[in-house]
Nucleic acid binder design. Structure first.
Length: 849
RNA sequence: GGGCGAUUAGCUCAGGGGGAGAGCGCUUCCUUGACGCGGAAGAGGUCAGUGGUUCGAAUCCACUAUCGCCCACCA
């Protein structure tokens, strides 16, 4: 193609869809177990089928795609395995809301079977949207292997895992306090509760004595307790005080009456009670508070449950039966007031738990649930992390995860929901309990509950590869190479995958974990739909192109969270344009033959390229994406485009056309993992034989390293810059005459600085410019001479400062003694170079004065 | 209450024991045949504060302040 026919900008709209289709047609992303190659595998953290991908997905997608493409180009059999998650509670919530909104119905109106069908259909539709978005991103996933946590095979894996853990005694049924969401009418796990500081009240509740022993020593006819949830008093079964609390020795053993429900309860002692809090007397409501539950266990008291699953008061609540909990709270307080049994009411700030999915206030509630016993599962995971069998970027997250695993409570995995994997446990009429995938026979009823979504996700890295069947895939790709994720699901998901991987495969599920930044809104707060500050990646792809967005995200990605700025996409787009036009320049050289006579600048750019390849590759390997982007950007733009292309125009060598093409092709290859579409298109325009996606990744080549060329070119660049700077400040145009002391590439210097080198400049007026350790002298017209004196004086005082500083340092004995030898010798060199420069400048000044 | 992290140019952010970096923005100049989504040259920062370690601290340590995030059963 002719360069002149090409537009001046790259048009992502015209290119991206076409190229993705081409990659797919060629099966470029397909990976299979191979005898010849080493495996590289990333499993995509399955997005929830509830909706669209957000910026976090775009960032993580860019990261994973970059690593996968790089591995593929490096010759690994690289598999990026895609999938989606059925998102039990999240999807059920979405469908329920939709149902209310559109039909005014609840899930119970529909019935279980019909409701689950609605969920299935909804998931089906949402899923195609997500998959489309991944394609827009350019994700090089192997679509043949698309997995879904509700695939028949995946369901099998989940049920199998449950049954196995049950058989191994690691899953049990237990009645204890769980976090209950009255709206979902389901238990949720500790990790699914969000606590918020809330302004509430602390109510004094009074329990009259009924043992006929008269008032307490303080004269009161009642015992007083403080509570934030007065309605729970309906379920009180005891009062307790601290055994060491001398104020209450007389109280212990006395009987009081719970108002409204007319229950006589006793005052006991328990170590748990903090004498400092409130009155130092605690009411025990075992069905509605985890601590109370344990106290009641110690005291062997039966809990009294006063709530219905929807959070309303049940028949045990006496006169309050049927009221919503908020109503009951107000009513209890009011009635206590009327009875004179309400103590002081104080403002109080405390934390209230909310359901992660629907925001409803969580009720700690005594229910029967299925639990996974964690200690035995956590132990090997802790060991693996301690031994660094998994490398975590950044390492602080490895230690955090260990800490979490060490303090782990058992995991409640049953949910009273309908959408999800139904618990494979069967009950016979005789009360027999059987864990099995299939019904054990006639008359058995299956447990109605479904499993926590995260139970199935925990199996992701091996269930997607075929487990429990010992497939070739599983043997070849497991353990996977890397998992990239946001830190908010480190505990929820990553830690659990490690435990399950070790349990079921005897090996960690991934060798590395990359914990990426969270993409915040432009104002630095979290993006959220309710705040309306979300950014849709698709809009960005439309406007800037997927490559630009990807580059921008990686450029900004680090271990820190970052506020998204459109500037980064702009940066990416400018970069693509810059490369596009560099390509147009390269394309102008039609006769490209390999020539041996490389000039200093040819050798310099090749040496810089080699350095860049090494550094860039290492940075990607270590998930230092931001730094990697800076390295490649600065090489391509600031070295190759700004200098080498300019040199190629002004002072080409016979080898230049070839070097131009070589270096530019290498840049394309290096950037292909990051900006796959644009680089692929440029490779095509350049007439590559093969798609970039299939080409090899540049490797470091020590034979290209050329210290001498680098030094010479660096000095030459400085000299050129010095002249340019002088021209700009003194407003000098046109060609100049001059000479350089110090070795530079004269041809390049002369061409780029616009200076004709002359041998001797005796007698004429000259400007003396500093360029590192070289001095450039430029012939001067009379009118510029006076300015030159001022300039020289300024320069002299600057260099004098430098000299003084070096002298000061070197005269410090301790510095000379203790600083590393190379630092000291470097300082000496600096001093001597600056001293020489200073002499030159002073001599010149003398001439002028 | 514990833990982790941040505080660097007007803005968004890198960096990290031996003379402060990028992009954007700003100033001046340039319709040079790769590119104005461009080029050249600039201005702009006692790297939050205080103390310490060190020959040397923006960088390591301690404390303080401000802002985040995570974890935790004080009713």
């Amino acid at each position: 193609m002719n360069a002149a026919e090409l537009p001046k900008t790259y048009d992502h709209r015209a290119v991206e869809g076409r190229i993705y289709a081409e990659w797919e047609r060629l099966g470029a992303f397909e990976a299979d177990p191979s005898h010849d190659e080493d495996p590289y595998c990333i499993v995509l953290p399955p997005p929830n089928v509830t909706g669209a991908l957000h910026m976090g997905h775009a960032l993580n997608g860019a990261i994973q795609d970059t690593l996968t493409r790089r591995a593929r180009m490096k010759g690994y059999e690289a598999l990026w395995l895609p999938g989606v998650d059925h998102a039990s509670i999240a999807l059920q919530n979405v469908v329920e809301r939709k149902l209310v909104r559109e039909e005014g119905k609840t899930r119970w109106d529909l019935g279980r079977e019909e409701f689950v069908e609605r969920c299935r259909v909804f998931a089906e539709e949402a899923r195609s949207q997500i998959l489309g978005q991944l394609k827009r991103l350019g994700a090089s996933v192997d679509w043949r292997r698309l997995r879904y946590t509700m695939d028949d095979h995946y369901i099998d894996s989940v049920l199998m895992a449950f049954v196995k853990l049950y058989e191994q005694g690691l899953i049990y049924r237990g009645r204890r306090i769980t976090n209950w969401c009255p709206r979902d009418r389901s238990a949720i796990s500790d990790l699914e509760v969000n606590y918020e500081e809330t302004n509430g009240k602390l109510y004094g509740l009074r329990y009259p004595f009924v043992d006929g022993k008269g008032p307490a020593p303080d004269g009161n006819e009642y015992a007083q307790v403080f509570s934030t949830r007065p309605e729970t008093m309906l379920g009180d079964v005891a009062l307790v005080v601290n055994p060491d609390d001398e104020r209450y020795t007389d109280l212990v053993g006395r009987k009081v009456m719970v108002p409204f429900v007319e229950r006589e309860i006793e005052v006991f002692v328990d170590e748990y009670v903090d004498p400092q809090f409130g009155t130092g007397v605690l009411k025990v409501t075992p069905a509605h508070d985890p601590n109370d539950f344990e106290i009641a266990n110690r005291l062997r008291l039966e809990p009294v449950n006063v709530l219905n699953p929807d959070g309303s008061i049940n028949a045990n609540g006496g006169p309050f039966e049927g009221m919503k909990r908020e109503e009951a709270r107000a009513a209890v307080v009011e009635r206590l007031g009327e009875m004179g049994m309400l103590g002081p009411v104080r403002d109080y700030r405390f934390r209230v738990g909310h359901c992660d999915r629907c925001g409803t206030v969580i009720e700690p509630w005594l229910t029967e649930q299925w639990w996974v016993s964690m200690r035995e599962l956590a132990e090997p995971a802790i060991k693996a992390l301690e031994r660094k069998e998994i490398t975590v970027y950044p390492d602080s997250w490895r230690r955090e995860t260990i800490r979490w695993l060490e303090n782990l409570h058992d995991w409640n995995v049953s949910r009273q929901l309908w959408w999800g994997h139904r618990i494979p446990v069967w009950y016979s009429p005789e009360g027999e309990v059987v864990a099995s995938k299939e019904s054990p026979g006639e008359g058995y009823e299956q447990d109605p509950d479904v499993l926590d979504t995260w139970f199935s996700s925990a199996l992701w890295p091996f269930a997607t590869l075929g487990w429990p069947v010992e497939t070739e895939d599983l043997a070849y790709f497991y353990p996977t190479s890397l998992l990239s994720t946001a830190r908010e699901i480190m505990y929820l998901w990553v830690a659990r995958m490690i435990m399950m991987g070790l349990r079921f495969r005897g090996d960690v599920p991934f060798e590395k974990v990359n914990v990426h930044s969270i993409v915040l809104a432009e104002d630095g707060t979290k993006m959220s739909k309710s705040k309306g500050n979300t950014i849709d990646p698709l809009d960005l792809f439309d406007e800037y192109g997927a490559d630009a967005v990807r580059f921008g995200l990686l450029y900004q990605s680090s271990t820190q969270d970052f506020a998204y700025s459109y500037e980064r996409a702009d940066l990416g787009r400018s970069f693509v344009t810059k490369l596009w036009n560099a390509m147009r320049f390269v394309l102008a050289y039609t006769h490209v033959e390999e020539v041996r006579e490389a000039s200093t600048s040819d050798r310099w750019i090749l040496s810089e390229l080699n350095r860049t390849v090494r550094e860039y590759d290492r940075l990607l390997e270590e998930c230092e994406f931001s730094e990697a982007m800076r390295v490649i950007y600065s090489f391509a733009w600031n070295q190759f485009a700004d200098w080498y292309i300019e040199i190629a125009k002004a002072a080409p060598s016979p080898a230049t056309p070839h070097v131009l093409r070589e270096v530019f092709s290498s840049i394309l290859k290096l950037l292909h993992p990051v900006m796959p579409f644009a680089t692929e298109e440029m490779a095509r325009v350049l007439g590559a034989d093969e798609l970039l996606v299939r080409q090899g990744f540049p490797e470091p080549d020590t034979s290209l390293h050329d210290e001498e060329a680098e030094e010479l070119l660096e000095r030459t660049k400085r000299a050129v810059s010095a002249v340019r700077s002088f021209r700009a400040e003194s407003r000098v145009e046109g060609r100049l005459e001059g000479r350089v002391s110090g070795e530079v590439d004269l041809e390049v210097f002369s061409a780029l600085a616009g200076v004709r080198p002359v041998g001797s400049m005796d007698g004429s007026a000259k400007a003396t410019l500093l360029a590192g350790d070289a001095v450039v002298e430029i012939s001067l017209t009379e009118e510029l001479r006076r300015g030159e004196i001022k300039r020289l004086q300024k320069e002299i005082s600057r260099v004098e400062g430098e000299v003084a500083r070096s002298r000061g340092k070197l005269s410090n004995e301790k510095f000379v003694e203790r600083a590393p030898a190379e630092v000291v010798s470097g300082e000496r060199e600096k001093l001597s170079a600056n001293t020489r420069v200073l002499e030159t400048l002073n001599r010149r000044l003398d001439e002028y004065l």
